[in-house]
Every structure is written in C-alpha cells, then in structure tokens.
Nucleic acid binder design. Structure first.
Length: 365
DNA sequence: AAGGCGTGGAT
DNA sequence: TATCCAAGCCT
C-alpha cells in the first residue's frame, strides 16, 4: 500500500465506515431515472451526461435520450445531427460524439455487450477513470474507485487532506485511498453513497454535518475544519471575444445558417453567419458587409440591430452583436438556406438560440 | 501539466 | 453582479 494512504488509514475503522455509509445510502438515496434498473448502457449514458453537469439539468435529457435511443444498437445507428439535436443545450458536445463512437465499438467488437473489464471498458472513447469506476461498479458491482468532485470533497474532509483537488496527482491519491476502503460486498452502494453524501449532506458550502451518517469518522468535523476543505486553486477566467452576427434573409425570405467545423468549440453545431469583431475597427456593420463582399462575393445589407447576446463559456466569453439583414448572391459550401420553420430542426448553441428567439419575438410584434 | 471544452444554478 | 461551479475527458 502507498505509504501516504497507510498513514491516512491509521485509526480509521473501515468496516464501520462502510456500514454507516451504505446503510445511509440505501435509506436516503434519491429516486433518479437511471437508478430504475441496472442496464449498463443506461447507466453509462447517465454518467456521460452527468460529467460536469447538474442532476436537475440531466433528468429531462436522460428521459428523452433513452426514449429515442433505448439501447446500444439504436445509438450506434443514430444520425449524428439528430443526436446532437437531442443533446442540444447540455453542452460539452464532444461527449455525445465520443459516446456514439464508443457504442459503435461495443456493437462491432463486443457483440453489443458493454465490457465488464476495467482494461477494456476504459479504452473506449470518452471513458476516463471516473466513468470507468462508476459504470463498472454500479452496473457490474466491480470494486473500482469512481472519484469525482463529490468524492474528493467528502474524502478530503473525512481524512483532512489538503492537497489541491484540481491536480491530477491528487485525484490519483483519492483513487488509491478508495481502493483500500471500498466495500467488496457492495461497491455499487459504496461509490454511489460517497457521491450521494457529497450531493445531499457534504455540500461545498454549509455542509449539514449534524445529519451526516459518517461524522464520527470525519476528521474535519472533529476539528471544525470542514468548510476550509477541499483545497481548490482558482482557475482564471477567459478572455472576451466580440462577434457581429446576423439573421440574413435571401431573396426568397429564407434564412442563412452555417455549420461549424467538426472539431473544437461547439463542433458540428449550426450558427448564424458571424465574424469576429477586431477591436479598434470603427464600424462593425460596414466591416461585416465588406468582408462578405470580399470573401464570398455576396451583397449583404444589415438593416437593423436585433440584440446583444453575452455568453460565458468555461474558458471564454462571447459578446455577439446581432443584426437582421438581407443577402444577395452565391453562398459558400458550409452555408445553407432554410425555411423559417426548418431552423429549429438544426442543433444550435445556446447563444444562437437566444438570438433566434429574439428574432421571432421581434417579427411577432 | 494545463488548457480546451457548455450550460444554467446557487450564493 | 461576480464567482464558482456540477457525477470529467482529451490533448
């Protein structure tokens, strides 16, 4: 055993801790849709959706997704654009692309059965150390750690660990620790119990220690240090990028939309034509019209401002100055002209959904 | 190792 | 209003 871990486990009653945690979990666990059965596919889908995403946000998406893609085969055969439309608004869109790639792999290489071996399952696209432990412990009852943000918060308090949880090395320490304390009889309830405790009791701010089933095991509670843990260094916030974007109508009154590149930010989603505003430029409208003339040979006439959409991503901020305008001329390959009612059939990032909503509001008046 | 990758909720 | 996120993974 790791020396650090063995020191942490001194005077720690593993069996009592497991018993208290698991009994509490059995009694208090929330009734969540992915807990209805032990279908490895559905548990996998839920875990991917839950990556960096709140339970309340995921629930309606999970119902819709499973209704549309009830099993491995259905997801493997799904149309990617339809899939992205189903994921629209959940964010981190590469998750669903990776999930489909992984499910296709399961379909062709493993006869449509989700692998139950750590070595095999963890090689699939989008499946990292957390998802490996979560799916294999919950669906197959394998004693594999599933260390997420909840688990690091809970364990950093119980063992008074002050390592910065933003670091990869710290997550590995927690995994080594869980290797030692995980229940071999019920690893599923143990892993879920730690996460559920983090979600319901051992919350980031104002933890409800008096309701905690394992407070007798908690060193932070003994010393009153729980609100100082876990230690997490701040991440810097990103820069702001300004755009001018337009709802452009062609001569037949159809709407111009454009597909984003298949890699990078908001990959393969659609947007309204836009150009980055280089700071220092004087008139963004004239610049936009000229740029389109130069780049595409299209005549654009921006008629009036629509709104300004500010959208904060995890690593940057967009400020979109939205306009309504007309366009004449040929359009490039990645652009498409669609009827007003067809716009909603395409997957759009939230900032462009806001822009479209403003437009619909405006023309309804 | 550290930064890219979304979104909406809580405080 | 500003900040920090919430069941991470990829490169």
């Amino acid at each position: 055993m790791n020396e650090r871990v063995s020191v942490l486990l001194k005077n720690f009653n593993i069996e009592e801790f497991q018993k208290s945690l698991i009994e509490w979990f059995q009694e208090e666990k929330r009734n969540l849709p992915w807990r209805a059965d032990k279908d490895p596919y559905k548990i996998w889908v839920s875990e991917v959706m839950l990556q960096q995403t709140r339970v309340d946000t995921v629930i309606p998406y999970f119902y819709r997704f499973i209704e549309k893609y009830p099993n491995i085969e259905a997801l493997a055969n799904a149309d990617e654009q339809e899939l992205l439309k189903t994921w629209e608004g959940l964010g981190y869109y590469s998750r669903v692309k990776n999930l489909q790639a992984a499910v296709k792999e399961v379909q062709t290489q493993y006869g449509g059965v989700v692998p139950d071996e750590k070595k095999t399952f963890s090689k699939l696209k989008g499946v990292g150390p957390y998802t490996t432990g979560a799916v294999l412990s919950i669906a197959y009852n394998k004693p594999i750690p599933a260390v997420d943000g909840n688990v690091m918060r809970v364990l950093s308090r119980i063992f008074e660990i002050e390592d910065d949880i933003i670091k990869v090395r710290t997550r590995k320490l927690f995994e080594e620790l869980v290797e030692e304390i995980i229940s071999r009889e019920d690893p599923s309830s143990f892993n879920q119990g730690l996460m559920e405790l983090g979600a319901l009791i051992c919350k980031p701010t104002s933890p409800d220690c008096l309701l905690c089933p394992v407070r007798d095991h908690c060193r932070a509670f003994q010393h009153g240090t729980e609100t100082r843990l876990p230690v997490k260094s701040k991440q810097k916030k990103g820069r702001t990028v300004q755009y001018i974007a337009a709802i452009l109508l062609d001569e037949r009154g159809k709407v111009v939309i454009r597909k984003r590149p298949d890699e990078g930010l908001l990959a393969s989603l659609w947007e309204f034509p836009n150009e980055e505003v280089i700071s220092g430029k004087k008139n963004m409208i004239i610049d936009f019209e000229n740029e389109w003339l130069d780049k595409y040979g299209a005549n654009v006439d921006l008629l009036e401002p629509l709104c300004v959409v500010e959208h904060v991503f995890s690593h940057l901020t967009w400020k979109i100055h939205a306009f309504v305008g007309l366009v004449k001329g040929e359009l490039p390959q990645n652009m498409k002209v669609v009827a007003f009612e067809e716009v909603d059939e395409y997957p759009f990032p939230v900032p462009y959904q806001k822009m479209w909503k403003e437009y619909k509001k405006k023309i309804a008046i």
